[in-house]
Write a protein that binds this DNA or RNA. Structure first.
Length: 221
DNA sequence: CACCAGGCAAGTA
DNA sequence: TACTTGCATGGT
């Protein structure tokens, strides 16, 4: 079986298992962006607490966030962990939004995806995964997001080397799949979901994983 | 108790 | 360039 066929079959399998993923869980593009930074190496449940702190104080708008100083912001997002660096990172993101679109995210729809990606990467605290998550889930661009889970699953299935570069791993998908925003959104969400349930680092439960059939080496050519 | 979570940047050699 | 370390809370 070709890699293209395999990646498509895996997607369909996960679609059967999870249906609508509900990703990204946020009310606005701004909330997606904040969440993308807050969730860096952090459990989503902790990010939710930080988001709730901001929401209940009506601070989840560009204008309101701009009024907060660094210490205030840090205190509000404390439950998300790494709160001091993340406060800096959020401020850097807000500063970029201010200069690129005056905080009006809708205006970014005119921008070229590759240029946007480069600008996002220039923000201190926004790396490749965060940039791509913002592009895909906040700005609706056809960018495939990969992460440690993606690497773990697809290397364990013999479809990628264990040590693979972010963009190499990303190309694996973008070279084989159509540029479909909806599909990209769901695919990444499914990968995270399946990894959380069956693909833990030290306690993987591969026997019950819905992707187990794809472990059969004979499945690929 | 150890280990993990929807990464990234800065420091070292 | 190739490793290493700091960042931190909260759940299992």
């Amino acid at each position: 079986m070709s890699r293209k066929a395999a990646l498509t079959a895996i997607y369909q399998t996960l679609q059967q298992v999870f249906g609508d993923s509900g990703w990204w869980p946020a009310d606005t593009p701004l909330e997606v962006m904040l969440g993308a930074v807050l969730t860096q190496n952090t459990a989503w449940t902790n990010v939710e607490k930080a988001i709730v702190n901001l929401k209940t104080k009506n601070l989840l708008t560009f204008a309101a966030l701009q009024t907060l100083d660094l210490a205030e912001l840090a205190e509000l997002i404390r439950p998300a962990g790494f709160f001091r660096v993340k406060a800096l990172r959020l401020k850097a993101l807000l500063a970029w939004l201010n200069e690129s679109c005056a905080g009006n995210i809708e205006l970014l729809s005119n921008c070229d995806t590759d240029e946007l990606r480069q600008e996002l990467l220039n923000i201190k605290g926004v790396g490749p995964e965060t940039a791509d998550a913002i592009l895909l889930y906040a700005l609706h661009r056809p960018v495939f997001v990969v992460d440690e889970y993606t690497r773990r699953i697809f290397s364990r299935h013999g479809m990628a080397p264990q040590e693979i570069d972010y963009h190499e791993l990303q190309s694996l998908f973008t070279d084989a799949l159509p540029e479909d925003v909806k599909m990209f959104r769901e695919y990444h969400a499914y990968i995270v979901s399946v990894a959380k349930k069956w693909c833990k680092r030290h306690k993987p439960d591969c026997l019950n994983c819905p992707l187990r059939p794809f472990l059969d080496q004979d499945f690929y050519e």
